[in-house]
Structures are given as C-alpha cells and as structure tokens.
C-alpha cells in the first residue's frame, strides 16, 4: 500500500508536468491544426533559461525565494518570446500551404533549436541548482512524496486555474475559443486571427517553460535533448485526452503519468516509454478521437 501511494504521487507529479507541456500542443492544434513539433524545444529552452538566470542570481547571492520567482518569470518571458518567434518565422508564412509543409518546417525548427542550445551552451548534462527547499511540514510524508512533488502539484493547479480564467473570461480567451471554432468566421467578426494565434503560442510556451523549470528542479539535471522525449510524451498525452480539448490534455497527461509510474514500479523500469506508447495505441484503437475528444462525425 505504501509503495502504491508513493507511485501514485510520483505519477501525479509526472502527469502534472506533462499537462503543462501538453496544453501548449493542444491549444495550438485546436487553433491552427498543427502539430507544433518544436514545442518540446520551447520547454527545454524554458528549463535552460531558468537554469541560467537562477545560477547567475545565486552566484550573486540573491535569496532563494527571489531567485525562484525571477528565474521562473524569465523562463516564461523568454520561452514565450521563442514561441512567438518560431510561429512568426516557421509557421505563419505557411498558413495556406499544403498540410504537411508546416509539419516539416516544425521538425526543422526543432532540430534548429536543439542544436542552437547545444552550441550556445553545452552538450553535457548540467546539474540544475536546487531551487525547491525541503519544506519542514513535509517531513511526516517524506516517504510518500518529496517537497518538490508538492510544489509541482500546487504550481500546476494554480497555473491551470489562471489558464482557465484566461480562456473563459478574458477578451483574448474568448477570441481564442472563437478562432478555434471557426477561424474564417472569427476573422469576419473582427478578430485579429494572427494576433490570437501568436497569443496562443506565447501562452502555450509560457506553460511549457513553467513545466521545464519544475521538472528540471525536480530531476536535478538537464541537457539540450530533454525536449524531444518530453515533447513526444506530452503530445501523446494531448492525443490521449483528445487533441484540441483543454480538459482532455490534463486528463490525458494524468492518465499517462500514472500509467508510467505504476508500470515502471510494478513491471519493469526498462520499458517505461514502451508503456506510454502502447497505452496510446490501445486507447486510440478503442477510442479513435481520444478520451475527451469530440467524436468526429463525418459530414457526408
């Protein structure tokens, strides 16, 4: 039972991180129907930016709390900027191109960003500074879950709350929903669709950056390649939940995180990723549009 609870919380933590990345995929897909392959790289850049800022600040002797806040804000700002730039350079010129072209462009962007970070920083794994202190009140539960798990779960919850608020009640959120439903119609009623798309990329990238920073602080090391697997997993989670659906992305991420955690805990840790993809294949075979995806009723 003890082991079960431990696995449960570690799965939840994983799921939370996946959710932060998966939201970016799902939002972008919902609006322009593109698999943003470079999204994993944005997450990686978020992790790197927070690493750099946090390291510099801690070397200059800033207090931990301020360091965390500034590093997090920097990661969000810069990842958002990268997301915006990627969209402007690699996707916007291809808005009316054949369907596969933006995908290739995205793969190119992903290769580009990976190698850019590799060249600008390093190809080695670097150890991430300890940003999350051991919380004193967590001692009693330390067997089940660490302080970083708690911080990750709470941060994710808060971020989700903010995102929900933005999408439900703000002007840009409403514009995003309208564009996702029908971009031509949205344009006709005076929504600046390009701006909405940019905003979607920025928000999605910001979420991924938070995910990147949290996971880096949790695991303790990063390199330029972490975006690839995380990206694929998060995309898997988004598809699992039904791509285009925001609650679906969260649900899919949690299901994926828990499955991975239990499977590695009880079966074998060698096949961690195999479980993830097998789960995906199975769910899609039985529910071809994901857990919460709208059933695609073919209009004939």
């Amino acid at each position: 039972m003890h082991y079960f609870i431990e696995l449960f919380f570690s799965g939840l933590t994983r799921g939370a991180i996946y959710a932060l990345i998966a939201l970016g995929y799902t939002m972008v897909y919902g609006i322009i129907g593109l698999i943003n392959f470079a999204h994993g790289e944005i997450y990686m850049i978020g992790a790197f930016t927070s690493y750099i800022v946090a390291s510099v600040l801690s070397l200059y002797g800033y207090p931990l709390f301020a360091t965390v806040i500034i590093a997090g804000a920097a990661a969000v700002v810069w990842s958002g900027a990268y997301g915006y730039t990627v969209e402007r350079l690699a996707y916007r010129p291809l808005r009316r191109a054949p369907r596969l072209s933006p995908l290739i462009s995205a793969i190119g962007m992903s290769i580009l960003l990976q190698n850019y970070v590799f060249l600008a920083q390093t190809s080695d794994f670097i150890s991430f500074p300890k940003l999350i202190p051991d919380l004193p009140f967590m001692d009693r539960y330390a067997d089940y879950l660490g302080s970083s798990d708690v911080v990750i779960l709470f941060t994710t919850l808060i971020v989700m709350g903010i995102l929900t608020f933005i999408i439900r009640y703000t002007r840009i959120g409403k514009a995003m929903r309208a564009t996702a439903q029908d971009s031509t119609m949205a344009m006709l009623v005076g929504i600046n669709v390009n701006r909405v798309i940019s905003a979607t990329f920025v928000i999605g990238s910001g979420l991924a950056a938070i995910g990147g920073m949290l996971i880096a602080a949790h695991i303790g090391q990063i390199n330029y390649y972490i975006g690839f697997l995380a990206g694929i997993k998060a995309f898997t989670a988004a598809v699992l939940g039904g791509i285009g659906s925001i609650p679906g992305a969260v649900l899919g991420s949690l299901v994926l995180g828990l499955t991975e955690s239990f499977a590695t805990g009880y079966v074998s840790s060698d096949y961690e990723d195999v479980f993830a993809f097998t789960l995906l294949v199975l769910i899609l075979i039985f529910r071809p549009s994901g857990l919460l995806g709208k059933k695609e009723s073919q209009k004939v």
Binding site: P98, S101, I111, N115
Partner: peptide, 22 residues
C-alpha cells in the same frame, strides 16, 4: 563541423517557407 545539424534545421525551415509545395 558541429554547425551541421543547425544548418540542416535552418535549411528545412527555409525550404518549406519558400517552397511549401515541394
């Protein structure tokens, strides 16, 4: 040398932007 893959990525993006239909 090590800029190879960077150049490859840039090339993919550029080719798609300027010649999306192949």
């Amino acid at each position: 040398a090590q800029y190879r893959m960077l150049a490859f990525g840039i090339l993919l993006v550029l080719l798609m932007v300027f010649r999306p239909q192949g």
